[in-house]
């Protein structure tokens, strides 16, 4: 793997992160509405978004907080839920270590890891050249602002936007995912197949009654690991090819 300096600058990252930030704005708007609706203070909702930067984990976290119980019980439940739902970030972190340039020292990694979300990871990991701290910080900027800002707006003024608009905004983030995976799916049979397998498994876990016990966060890990293992076995990448593509 290349140890050279990344060709991407802060501004490249900032630009790449804008669509993610806009997507987050609408998703976190929904989180803000939900959190306050469940009885949290506006500032609590904002604080959660500013310190966690993750959707599924936060929604589950609020559920745990408002469910009630002894303090020790809630703390234990909180640790367990966050561990399971966010375990995918560990896997993504290891994946991304393979795509970093030599400027990514421990100090930088401590800060960069805070911004490891599904979307930021997917963009950073699919760049054709290794990424460095500047690009990654640029990539984190708009999503962080969008996530915190959307939460605040949602918590403050959940009722301003008509329901029909709020509902339609819900698809933004998924449409973005489609836009990320479709071009490489067209080019590479391996990517096409891994997407098909992961999506198929995800549907099985969602719809088969005896698999309902698997939570949404955990389902993502299970599907992604199985699909990637199968494809790594069926269709290993060419040695000369780098990881990633020109998304």
């Amino acid at each position: 793997m290349k140890q050279t300096n990344s060709p991407y600058r802060y501004l490249n990252g900032l630009r790449d992160g804008v669509p993610i930030g806009l997507g987050y704005l609408s998703v976190s708007f929904g989180f803000g509405i939900t959190a306050v609706g469940q009885g949290l203070h506006i500032l609590e909702a904002l604080l959660i978004s500013m310190t966690n930067l993750t959707s599924a984990g936060q929604v589950a976290g609020v559920t745990v907080m408002v469910a009630g119980g002894t303090v020790a019980m809630i703390v234990a439940e909180m640790i367990l839920t966050q561990l399971i739902i966010n375990l995918r970030y560990s896997l993504m972190g290891i994946t991304l270590t393979q795509r970093l340039d030599s400027n990514c020292t421990t100090r930088h990694r401590l800060l960069m890891s805070f911004g490891m979300t599904d979307e930021i990871f997917a963009l950073a990991a699919s760049k054709p050249y290794p990424v460095g701290p500047s690009y990654f910080y640029g990539l984190m900027t708009a999503p962080y602002i969008g996530w915190a800002g959307g939460t605040l707006l949602g918590a403050l003024a959940g009722q301003i936007l008509p329901m029909s608009v709020r509902l339609a905004l819900g698809i933004a983030i998924y449409a973005m995912f489609v836009a990320i995976v479709l071009p490489p799916m067209r080019r590479e049979r391996g990517v096409l197949m891994v997407v098909a397998i992961a999506a198929g498994l995800s549907c099985l876990i969602r719809y088969l009654p005896f698999l309902q016990f698997i939570s949404d966060g955990f389902s993502i890990i299970v599907c992604a690991i199985i699909a990637s293992l199968v494809m790594a076995w069926l269709k290993p990448i060419e040695e000369k090819e780098g990881i990633g593509d020109d998304t």
Binding site: T95, I237, I243
Partner: peptide, 26 residues
């Protein structure tokens, strides 16, 4: 094998997050 596994992971994660959740997003 491991390189291939990590190559496929981001696409698999995106696919699993999107399908079937997108159908209930609106």
């Amino acid at each position: 094998f491991a390189k291939s596994f990590f190559y496929y992971i981001p696409y698999a994660v995106l696919a699993a997050m999107t399908i079937p959740a997108i159908f209930y997003s609106t």
